[in-house]
Design a protein around this nucleic acid. Structure first.
Length: 459
RNA sequence: GGCUAGGUGGCAGAGUGGUUAUGCAGCGGCCUGCAAAGCCGUGUACCUCGGUUCGACUCCGGGCCUAGCCUCCA
């Protein structure tokens, strides 16, 4: 079975065939580092990291580039607000981004280019666009001339006339056409800027991705990915810039877009003020539970985030880790289950992959013979690793979920001993009272055949 | 206004022209002094109206509703 991917270009699922099977190229739009990432920002990071893993399991040499936008007016604003330099802002939030994504099981891409490190490539690309007649300079700006590119609007399926007909905000006077977009803009002395043929300035947002993907992946790439809100204008503009600068009929061969994370069905966005910051969520919930929830819906569908859904994710992981914990000794190496692999290779169908995982778990539970059970558990863990799940030690998982209760172990053990004595005396009223008292303090008692064990309650 | 996506059981969420999704919760049972945990079992769900078909939740058309993009945004 080949890998199949939904391509936004033609709105269909297609077999994925790389241009060069020895060098598969993937570019995903990364963060603008001016504050902490919210869970909506985390979704593409998790999804396209998963895509990278799926591709890597089939191709030897997959190059995954995910940029960091470190020159942007929002960064300038944050620096001004906080009274620090822009380098400090972008360093701080890039570090936080890496830490938060790591907690969600997201690995580092092959390359992580930064806009400020590619200014010369950006300037060269802008010059080329001017030379070829696709861009023009005006009042210190350089603008892309959308009229010069007949295919403009192909990805987002829009045409200029309709867009102009819609309510538009005021058009800058230096634009020839309302749809023209900025490739380069002038900087004041206070703003970060670089010398260019058009004076001191800084790049527009769209051009950096075009320049960096060309620099690291080539002029035609296999897959370009990002959030649905980037289809227009960001990706449309990238296509225009890249194709016109390089004279190619194609920029990215497959375009993939993830759906939004919503809260009470509304898009999570900074302007709506309904964002949930990953950094904050991680103080309350295990990163793996956040990852599980992000994978529980198909990536192209909206994902409604809620505490209840998060609790469900935790409960499911609890059960699976409990099952893995029942393994005796080290699990042997195993192959991932074919159903899990097939689901992932079918346009990253993570819900179906998760369902297959549950099926394997059931097989393990129903295996009576210890050897068969161990084999099934090993397959469960190997399959889950394809999704970046269940790779912790079960005890680590449990520890993450436990709240700190203000009781020391000796006290707890002594109370349990008291209760055991009461039970031996068949004084169940006293035994139950002790159990209730401990429960109130967050200690759960479990009587098993091996004796009584306790654990701290989950949050 | 233009364009796009979607409406599935209590909740989350896949999928399919005729056969069990799966998870969480609930219910029944096993186990337990009683619990908890675990295990086993358990649900004629597919917005609406037409059409195509031997047969549609699944295909086609109309309608209703929701969300998103058209402005920075994952």
């Amino acid at each position: 079975m080949p890998i199949r991917l939904y391509n936004t270009l033609n709105r269909q699922k297609e077999e994925f065939v790389p241009l060069d099977p020895n060098r598969v190229t993937l570019y995903a739009c990364g963060p603008t580092v001016y504050n902490y990432a919210h869970i909506g920002n985390a979704r593409p990071a998790v999804i396209f990291d998963l895509l990278y893993r799926v591709l890597s399991s089939r191709f030897d040499n997959v190059i995954y580039a995910r940029n960091i936008t470190d020159v942007d007016d929002k960064i300038n604003q944050a620096a001004a607000d906080q009274g620090v330099g822009i380098e400090e802002i972008s360093r701080r939030y890039a570090d936080a981004y890496h830490a938060d994504m790591a907690a969600l099981g997201v690995g580092r891409p092959t390359v992580e280019p930064r806009a400020t490190e590619h200014i010369s490539e950006i300037i060269a690309m802008v010059e080329r666009l001017i030379d070829k007649g696709f861009a023009y300079a005006a009042e210190g700006h350089v603008l892309f001339d959308v009229d010069a590119f007949p295919d403009y609007g192909q990805l987002s399926r829009r045409n200029q006339r309709e867009m102009i007909a819609g309510a538009r905000v005021e058009v800058a006077p230096y634009k020839r056409n309302p749809g023209d977009f900025v490739l380069w803009k002038p900087s004041t002395e206070q703003q970060p800027g670089w010398d260019s043929p058009w004076g001191r300035g800084r790049p527009g947002w769209h051009i950096e991705c075009s320049a960096m993907s060309a620099a690291h992946l080539g002029e035609v790439i296999d897959i370009h990915a990002g959030g649905q809100d980037l289809v227009f204008p960001h990706h449309e503009n990238e296509i225009a810039q890249s194709r016109c600068a390089h004279g190619e009929s194609v920029f990215a061969r497959y375009w993939m877009h993830n759906g939004f994370v919503t809260v009470e069905k509304r898009k999570m966005s900074k302007s709506l003020g309904n964002t949930l910051i990953v950094h904050e969520l991680l103080k309350q919930w295990p990163g793996e539970a956040l990852r599980y929830l992000l994978l529980s819906a198909h990536y192209r569908q909206p994902l409604d985030w809620s505490e209840r859904a998060l609790e469900q994710a935790v409960a499911t992981l609890d059960r699976l880790y409990g099952l893995l914990d029942s393994a005796t000794g080290q699990l042997p190496d195993a192959e991932a289950d074919a159903a899990v692999v097939e689901a992932l290779e079918d346009d990253l169908n993570t819900p179906t992959a998760l369902a297959a995982l549950s099926q394997i778990a059931r097989d393990a539970q129903q295996s009576d013979a210890p050897a068969a059970r161990t084999t099934a558990l090993a397959r469960l863990k190997a399959s889950a690793s394809r999704l970046g799940l269940l790779q912790q030690d079960p005890a680590e998982w449990r520890a993450q979920r436990q709240v700190d209760v203000g009781l020391d172990d000796a006290t707890i053990l002594s109370r349990i001993a008291d209760r055991q004595q009461a039970r031996a005396d068949r004084d169940f009223a006293l035994a139950d009272r002790i159990r209730d008292e401990l429960a109130e303090q967050g200690i759960l008692i479990k009587d098993g055949p091996e004796g009584t064990v306790w654990e701290k309650a989950a949050k």
